[in-house]
Design a protein around this nucleic acid. Structure first.
Lengths: 294, 294
DNA sequence: GCAGATCGATACGCCTATGGTATGAATATG
DNA sequence: CATATTCATACCATAGGCGTATCGATCTGC
């Protein structure tokens, strides 16, 4: 069965007249006759009863007509959907994150993207940085978020935000209540740094900034991630440097203070295939770049 | 967009390999390349990304694939449905009735037909005999049921049942309670006959039978139809001859008695186009003829 | 009742477009 | 580095689709 036969059939069925259908289809009448004959032969079914004066659709023809309309509708849909997908208007954005971006900019980005691209669904995977690189390379995800990605020739690494940091301490700490602290205030304090794995990391950047400020902090613990670090911090085991955005959330037993002398780069970056083929990802990146992310 | 392109596309999409797809489709590889190229050109969309080593389907291709599968499914359905319709296995049987058949054999016929043809829906219209003839001729209905149809060259008239009759009387009538009556018993009684319109009719047949039995009944009323006749009868305005099957129903205030001496033909017939084109009707007629309808 | 109009089917020639073979370019494989 | 694999391209033969012309049947109008 060929599409042409379906189209011709629908025209004839609706006109109940071969000649009129031919005019409507901008072809002459004989081709209509032949295509309908071939269709009937293939089906083994009489679609029109050629009675005296004109043709009439049979019940088999009516049954075929219903399906035929579905076929052309689906064809139209196929065109529209594939074009929309090519423009990145429909489909799925597979993304991954590691660490604190899930607390800060990621929710805002996802919200904004969904608002502007209602027909694109987002799938979010928690993945270590190393797993993210693999997943991006073999197409399981299109983009990964995290901090401090190592260089990779196949990947584009793009910084999407750079936050200041704050100092976290237990609510019972003697500095709790102070809005601002100096490096001198904290130079004797025990510190908790994170994350433990995946160098280079925020931990390295924190240490670098302390040394730059002339302080050699006492590292009491290396926590697995931000949540663990703040838990230890709340237990009074030390102070902790954390991105500002997480200070916006309420952490039980934690107080935050500014530490303006500490020059920490706290960037959130994303990675994606350097030769990005995904129109959805292109849309997402365009949005990221257009948004002011503190 | 042509069906061939859709079929080729699906094969390539599923194999993610032009050469393998070509083997599966029993064609050589170049035609595959060309058809896919043409499809992409028509859509204005890249369906496969030709990267180093092999091809990979794009997101647009995946979107198209989903619709493409729907298209071939619909095509298969179109073939199956139209063939089933041609065999009379699906569709609608449009039928009409006039008068008492609705109380007797019609429910049984419809029930039986539905049991054996679950996918055929039945549409039932109450239509005068004259309207039935028109409706059959211009295809609005396929079959009409009633009694005493006049001859018509375009129509087949087929008797489907022939019932004996009983005598109906008011529950207060002096004969009420008697199982059997003779012509002599009732020769002085007033009678109600029906229907009033649509000669020849059951009324004519009733009168003929009385005359044949040597009785010239006193016609008190000519009722519109069976229901009206029995209503008048229940009011004690006269006796009424009715088909046996309606005696099976319970009519308030009515008693029935047999009248064996009255030789009434009480046939139920149906009419349909002499050159019947409808496979559903053929099925229905075959069933009617195979059923024993008393 | 006959001429003309209408409608679908058929015949035939032209040409598009499909498929096949051969081959090229790029890349993976051993 | 030679070979194999894979998709794209070139070219040819041909199947099949379209248009013109025409037929046969039926309906219409005078």
């Amino acid at each position: 069965m060929e599409m042409r036969q379906v189209r011709y059939f629908i025209a004839v069925a609706e006109e109940e007249n071969f000649t009129t259908a031919a005019r409507r289809l901008n072809v002459s009448q004989p081709p209509i006759t032949r295509q309908i004959q071939q269709l009937e032969a293939e089906l083994g079914v009489e679609l029109f009863s050629r009675g005296k004066k004109g043709v009439k659709i049979t019940s088999a023809g009516q049954a075929f007509l219903r399906e035929a309309k579905q076929i052309v509708n689906r064809s139209r849909l196929a065109v529209e959907r594939s074009r929309a997908a090519a423009r990145g208007e429909i489909g799925t954005l597979e993304m991954a994150y590691f660490g604190s971006p899930i607390f800060s900019i990621l929710p805002r980005l996802m919200r904004r993207f969904r608002d502007e691209n209602a027909s694109v669904s987002i799938s979010l995977h928690p993945l270590m940085k190393k797993e993210q690189v693999e997943a991006v390379k073999d197409g399981r995800i299109q983009i990964g978020f995290g901090r401090y990605y190592p260089f990779d020739p196949d990947l584009s690494i793009e910084q999407v935000a750079d936050e200041p940091v704050m100092l976290a301490m237990a609510a019972s700490h003697r500095f709790a209540g102070r809005d601002t602290l100096s490096l001198k205030d904290v130079q004797k304090e025990p510190f908790i740094i994170f994350p433990r794995s995946g160098r280079p990391s925020f931990a390295d950047e924190t240490l670098r900034a302390f040394h730059e400020g002339g302080v050699d902090p006492r590292i009491e613990f290396e926590a697995e991630d931000l949540s663990s670090a703040l838990a230890l911090c709340a237990a009074g085991l030390g102070l902790c440097v954390a991105p500002t955005s997480v200070a916006g959330l309420s952490w039980p037993g934690i107080r935050f203070a500014e530490l303006p002398q500490l020059n920490v780069q706290c960037p959130v970056s994303c990675i994606y295939l350097a030769d990005n083929q995904s129109p959805i990802l292109s849309r997402f990146l365009r949005m990221i770049r257009s948004v002011d992310l503190v």
